[in-house]
């Protein structure tokens, strides 16, 4: 059986909000090390990989592997009934057909319980190759989100170029073109505003901005984001969690 407790429901609410627009139904695999999810978005352009280590929970118990087949939007609907600072417990018996969620306020004078029906989901799992990326950029998650939002007013696509001078985002559409360039920098006072670039060779890739904007909904999970790119390959975009991560593998647009 699974029993996992979080001190603040907001932790799970934010994670689910970060993935719900892309995913429909998917399996969450639970074992003694934690919860894991791997799922393709509906159009197979983004692969979402979520890891929630058992250390990230205030209490965690899962003696035997449990697969939770869930509709992510149903989970989001139920989580909306929890206050952000509620204590949240997830429970599921072995081979059960439901996930039980309880939300308690800190004084424990209110307890809500919801049972979410589980589904048998036939899911494809992809092997993600171990990759040494040509460029790795660590930057503010909020700045990335803002930059992409600005450029989405111009075009459906953004081109990202990374070289030793910095990272450049550009877009071109009917009304004209625009770009934002960030130089590598260290901000001693606000470390999350630093831009760190590690590079073995310069890279340039283009991506759909609608999908990118869905990915950056994870910005509430972490102050920084790690963007990794290699020419002609999917980008890896990672938001670190206190114990685990939300990772997106994002297929580029490639010139025919």
């Amino acid at each position: 059986m699974l029993e996992a407790k979080l001190d603040a429901a907001s932790q799970l609410k934010k994670i689910v909000e970060a993935i719900r627009d892309m995913l429909g139904e998917c399996n969450i695999e639970c074992n003694e090390t934690g919860l894991a999810l791997q799922s393709l978005d509906k159009s197979h352009i983004v692969l979402v990989s979520l890891l929630l280590g058992s250390d990230g929970f205030s209490e965690y118990r899962c003696d035997r592997g449990v697969t939770l087949g869930l509709n992510i939007n149903s989970l989001a609907t139920v989580l909306r009934c929890a206050n952000n600072d509620d204590i949240l417990t997830l429970r599921s018996e072995d081979r059960a057909n439901e996930l039980i969620l309880t939300f308690e306020d800190s004084k424990a004078d209110r307890i809500s319980e919801f049972n979410l029906r589980l589904m048998d989901i036939d899911q494809e799992y992809l092997a993600i190759p171990e990759t040494e990326y040509a460029a790795t950029v660590v930057m503010s998650a909020a700045v990335l989100q803002r930059t992409l939002r600005d450029l989405s007013a111009l075009s459906e696509a953004v081109t990202i170029e990374i070289d030793k001078e910095g990272i450049r985002f550009s877009a071109e559409g009917d009304l004209g073109k625009g770009s934002t360039h960030f130089k590598p920098c260290v901000d001693m006072e606000n470390a999350e505003n630093s831009i760190n670039i590690t590079l073995s060779e310069p890279v340039s890739l283009s991506f759909n901005l609608q999908y990118f904007s869905n990915i950056t909904k994870a910005s509430s999970l972490s102050s920084t984001v790690t963007l990794q790119m290699t020419a002609g390959m999917p980008a890896q975009i990672e938001y670190k969690l206190p114990s685990g991560h939300v990772r997106y593998y994002f297929a580029p647009k490639i010139e025919d």
Binding site: F250, A251, K253, E255
Partner: peptide, 14 residues
Amino acid sequence: RFKQKKITGFFTMP
């Protein structure tokens, strides 16, 4: 011109 690739074109099923 630019064509949207799918993730399944890069990663395979084990």
